[in-house]
């Protein structure tokens, strides 16, 4: 395999069970370099377990995996040298200040020189908007400030891979926006693998999406591909006039699989599900207008968002 397309994260049948309960079932995962990969799943889906396995904080009970081509069990030291990690509920030493925390983390990665380390710390504090609070003890930090510090410590070593477990969980909308900007900025230098519940964020910044449900991988791929699969071949058509014969005509088409009808203000709106969306896109309007008696007010192909796709997948209704 060409080195340039060698995945940053690759797992094969990665499994983990705790006292007989299967938390992760045979995960086959691939994350490509310089991508932002959103790791989705409902609570208890196994996301944090998978992340901990990649970092060596837990041992797999089956299968295995590689990060940067290094075995996640046997060569974990080398993996951790190139990874920045933010835990779901980041905890730090409360007696330290933000600057001291970053200094502590940076010294795991760098031997010196002191001035360059301090410069890196200052840049990182600036990046996450904590420069003005750098020398205050963490004990007095709000949840959002702790989260920002968590992001800062995860990327103070400019990691090749950033693993973030719910990075925007306790941030306000401005904080969330800042985090997304940081992720986008880092894309040039690093691969970002992050779990989240905020699907809107994933849709905005991610290249690829991995969806877990009940410990099992249920979807994986580029976000556009997933969204396209998720467009459940449906159209909205709103007409004015005598709609009954038109509806009967539509229902008689073999490629129409269902119609939901809503009436409002003398207009009838149909949600038309079809088996052949390309044919439907061409045929629907001419078919409606063919008999006369109605005017088309609105016609569009339905676009599902990631939330629709996610919900349909985890509720067992794969698109």
């Amino acid at each position: 395999m060409n080195a340039s397309i060698c995945p940053v994260i690759e797992t094969r049948g990665l499994s983990k069970s705790y006292r007989g309960v299967q938390a992760l079932k045979a995960l086959d995962l691939q994350v490509q370099p310089h991508s932002i990969c959103g790791f989705l799943g409902p609570n208890g889906a196994g996301k944090t377990t998978a992340i901990k396995l990649l970092l060596g904080l837990a041992q797999p009970t089956g299968g295995g995996g590689r990060v940067f081509g290094k075995d996640i069990v046997k060569e974990n030291d080398e993996i951790r040298r190139r990874v920045g990690y933010l835990a779901q509920d980041p905890r730090f030493y409360d007696y330290m200040t933000a600057r001291e925390t970053l200094r502590f983390v940076a010294r795991f990665f760098y031997a010196g020189p002191r001035a360059a380390i301090e410069q890196r710390i200052a840049e990182t504090l600036e990046l996450v908007g904590l420069a003005d609070k750098a020398d205050r003890p963490i004990k007095g930090f709000s949840g959002g400030e702790r989260q920002r510090l968590g992001i800062a410590q995860a990327q103070v070593n400019y990691p090749d891979l950033l693993i973030l477990d719910e990075p925007a969980a306790s941030l306000d909308p401005i904080g969330r926006r800042d985090v997304l900007e940081v992720l986008c900025r880092l894309r040039k230098h690093a691969t970002v693998f992050y779990s989240t519940h905020i699907l809107d964020d994933v849709q905005r910044v991610s290249d690829t999406v991995v969806i877990l449900n009940k410990g099992q991988l249920v979807a994986q791929g580029p976000i556009e591909e997933l969204m396209a699969r998720g467009q459940a071949a449906a159209f909205t058509l709103t007409v004015k006039g005598d709609s009954a014969p038109v509806e009967a005509r539509l229902r008689s088409q073999p490629w129409v699989t269902g119609i939901e009808v809503m009436s409002k203000n003398g207009r009838v709106s149909w949600q038309i599900r079809v088996s052949d969306p390309d044919l439907a896109e061409v045929e629907l309007v001419p078919l409606v207008l063919a008999g006369g008696g109605v005017t088309v007010c609105e016609f569009e192909r339905n676009h599902q968002n990631l939330e629709d796709v996610f919900l349909s997948i985890v509720q067992g209704d794969k698109p």
């Binding site: 030291d77 040298r81 031997a111 020189p113 380390i117 410069q119 890196r120 840049e123």
Partner: peptide
């Protein structure tokens, strides 16, 4: 990466004592 990156000297400690001094 910025110019600062080239100035920083990565820690080379490996084995059981990795991270011990810090």
């Amino acid at each position: 990466m910025n110019a600062n990156e080239t100035l920083l000297i990565p820690s080379r400690v490996r084995g059981w004592s990795m991270g011990l001094a810090n």
